[in-house]
C-alpha cells in the first residue's frame, strides 16, 4: 500500500505537467498567443520566467515527495525512523531559498513595473491620443482635433467616438483613463493592458502597439448589472490611416445635414 502513494504522487506531477503542455497547444494566451505591445512582450517574459521557476519547484517537490514515500514504504518494522521535524539546518534552507527567489522576482520585475506605471519612466515621446471615460455601460472616447494636443477639458473641435479606440501603431501612445460613475477597468488582453478607472482620477495608460489590427476590449471590474455589455475595440492603424480616419471623423461629426452639391464642392476646391 505504501508504494501506491509514492507512485500516485509522482504520477500526479507527470499528469499535471503533461496536461498543461497539451492544453497550451490548444489554448494559451488570447489571440495568437503573443503580446502585441512592446511592454506586453516584457510582461510575457516575466510571466514565463515565473512559470519556469514555479514549474521547477513543483516538479522538484514531487520528486522529493515520491522519493520519501518510496523510501518510507521500504522501512522494516525494526528499523529506526529518522525524523527531520525541528531540524534547524533544514528550516533555514527552506526559508532562505524561497525568500531569495521572491526577492529576485520582486527586484527583477521593478523595471517593467516602473516603465508601465511611473510617469517619469514612460517612453520620452509618448503622445496622448485620447481621453477614455468609462461609464455604465460603455466607453466614451474624446480625441483632440488633428494636429492638436489633448486638453484636460473638452474643446470645441474635439472628436468623439464610443466603444471604439483608435490609435496609431508603431509608436508609444497614451490614453487618459477616467470614470463617470463607479470603478471600471480597461482590459485589452492581446495588448496586455489592464488598468482600473477610478472616479475622480485621471490615470494615464501608455502602450505601443507593434502590429496593426483590431483588438477586443472589455471591462475587468464588476461595475453593475450591465458589466458584460462594456465590450469595445481598439483599432491600431498606421499613422497615415489614423490621420485619414480623423479627417473623416471630423467631417462626419461636423456634418450640417446639407448634401454637398457639385457647385459647393467646386467652390470649396477653389478656396483651397
Amino acid at each position: 500500500m505504501g508504494r501506491f502513494w509514492a507512485i500516485f504522487f509522482s504520477l500526479a506531477a507527470v499528469v499535471t505537467v503533461g496536461f498543461t503542455a497539451i492544453g497550451a497547444e490548444y489554448w494559451w494566451f488570447p489571440g495568437d498567443g503573443h503580446a502585441h505591445t512592446t511592454l506586453g512582450k516584457k510582461i510575457d517574459d516575466l510571466f514565463y520566467l515565473i512559470l519556469i521557476i514555479v514549474a521547477v519547484t513543483y516538479i522538484g517537490t514531487h520528486i522529493v515527495l515520491g522519493y520519501v514515500l518510496w523510501r518510507g514504504a521500504e522501512i522494516r518494522k525494526d528499523e529506526k525512523v529518522w525524523f527531520s521535524h525541528g531540524s534547524h539546518a533544514l528550516e533555514v534552507i527552506w526559508t532562505i531559498v524561497p525568500s531569495g527567489i521572491l526577492l529576485f522576482i520582486a527586484l527583477y520585475q521593478m523595471d517593467v513595473w516602473r516603465n508601465y506605471r511611473v510617469k517619469a519612466y514612460f517612453p520620452k515621446k509618448t503622445a496622448a491620443v485620447a481621453e477614455v471615460t468609462a461609464r455604465q455601460f460603455e466607453w466614451r472616447i474624446r480625441y483632440p482635433a488633428r494636429g492638436k494636443t489633448l486638453q484636460p477639458r473638452p474643446q470645441p473641435d474635439d472628436i468623439y467616438t464610443v466603444n471604439d479606440i483608435r490609435v496609431p501603431a508603431g509608436q508609444p501612445v497614451s490614453i487618459s483613463l477616467r470614470s463617470d460613475d463607479v470603478q471600471h477597468a480597461i482590459f485589452v488582453p492581446e495588448l496586455r493592458v489592464k488598468q482600473d478607472a477610478v472616479p475622480g482620477l485621471v490615470i494615464p495608460v501608455w502602450f505601443e502597439v507593434t502590429e496593426t489590427g483590431t483588438y477586443d476590449m472589455v471591462c475587468a471590474e464588476l461595475c453593475g448589472w450591465g458589466h458584460y455589455k462594456m465590450k469595445a475595440r481598439v483599432i491600431a492603424t498606421s499613422e497615415e490611416d489614423f490621420e485619414a480616419w480623423k479627417i473623416n471623423a471630423a467631417k462626419e461629426q461636423f456634418y450640417d445635414g446639407v448634401p454637398a452639391t457639385p457647385d459647393a464642392v467646386a467652390a470649396k476646391a477653389d478656396e483651397k
Binding site: 482635433a145 488633428r146 473641435d157 472628436i159 471630423a250 467631417k251 461629426q253 461636423f254
Partner: peptide, 8 residues
C-alpha cells in the same frame, strides 16, 4: 468645424 477638418 473649419479647424477640425483642415490641418491646423
Amino acid at each position: 468645424h473649419m479647424a477640425a477638418t483642415e490641418s491646423v
